[in-house]
Design a protein around this nucleic acid. Sequence first.
DNA 1: CTAGGGTTAG
Length: 543
Amino acid sequence: MKKIGFREFLHGNHFRGLVSDLSQFHVEEIMGELMSESPDLSVWFFKELKYVYGFRHSRFSALLVSHVLAGQRRFKELQVILEQFLQEEGSGSASLLCELLSKSFREWDSTGVVWDMLLFLSSRYKMVDDSLYILERMKDLNLNVSTQAYNSILYNFRETYKMWDVYKEIDAKNEHTYSTVVDGLCRQQKVEDAVLFLRNSEWKDMVGSIEEALEFAGDMNKHGVEPDTVTYNILAKGFHLLGMISWVWEVIQQMLDKGLRPDVITYTILLCGHCQLGNIDKGLRLLKDMLSRGFELNSVIPCSVMLSGLCKTGRIGEALSLFYEMKANGLRPDLVAYSIVIHGLCRLGEFDMAVWLYDEMCSKRIIPNSRTLGAILLGLCQKGMLLEARAFLDSLVSTGCTLDIILYNIVIDGYAKSGCIEEALDLFKVVIERGITPSVATFNSLIYGYCKTRNIAEARKTLDVITLYGLVPSAVSYTTLMNAYANCGNTHSVDQLRWEMRAKGIQPTSFTYSVIIKGLCIGRKLEKCNQVLRDMISEGAGC
DNA sequence: CTAGGGTTAG
């Protein structure tokens, strides 16, 4: 092979026949020589082998070409090659890659770019452990980590408390960083934290005033950065999260002024706002407007938002009409759309219709998930149909489904609410036997069940059991128990629990305070109410 | 990168 000149080799008739005989060693050798002659040629050779002949390159070759591309700032090509490279390597390959990179490419000026791109891609492809490994090695080597890569890691951790560790590390935060945090907090059900975060973060451009925010978008123009629809949508989402619907309108206005077409997502955010505020009719008009603008082929999501709004306000008839209208217009309801309507029906006890839709959904090969099942269980429990709920739960288990703790919680809570503490405990035992980890809500329901059956002593013991399972009691755990003490005027025990909460750093909510005050009223200690109210104001209790 | 569905306390 070495005897053949490279250009001759590449363009001659030998090529096709020889590819199957090429070893990775040969290719590396050829690439090395090509590199010294013309890096472009080596890249071409690499791609030709890979994409035309399906040759599987060695790690070294792939990284070599990556460095050439990075040096020439051909990022798009770099990304494509590294994407496929990572997919071939699979998860768990980080340590090997890092070793190779630091051993053989240390001296390349472009190596930082390759590291960073690998970091970004491994994170984007959910190779979480690999991305963390690469990140650590990059820190060891003092390599710069781009905000884009960090944002992707942040995104992977947005539903966990680790999100903050990542967040703190990011030097050059951008609006993608902030919107990921807000999204994460919302997914953690911490909407208030999200609002607080928006207020306190350096993302001041958004929360200062609408003028500032929009001016900021305008400034992007001056700096040669065109704010696009996505930028405006993020802005709109921020306003929606802050409950400032009218500002969402301002954003839309601004977009129109700039000659940008608000897209289906922009309008969906607005629709969410209307529904959240209970302006269902406004929402219906908006949706009609959207459909007439030809958005209907795009997505089921706006319709789902509307369905959810209608169901939450008990307008199930209209929800069903909309549902059929969707189908008639060729929009296929997906898992979420079905779940929303099934939930709406179950809430009202319309189980026949709910089951009918459930079967229809299954017949369309849409596999129900935990949320769909939860809607049905919840409906049954709320109508006091505990036998049916339990039978449904058991039937799911017997068909081999692994049910998550939330589904068990719904039924345990159903038992507790009906005062069937024995059954609740029995099901709790089943949870443990099946190796499912209980959540705080599980215990909170048990505490409620004990309190309901006037067994405060057991309720108190259950509070302590939470810790044995490695969980942290919540404000709900305490408030439920405090309520039981309050109802019998036992202000001393209420006080004790309040002290315990404070010691553990668990924030009372306005629920908690109302229970404390109720206790003081029943226990005839009205003179202490003022102090409690003052505490409440100074602590700024939520809810 | 931006839009939709589930459990617990007064």
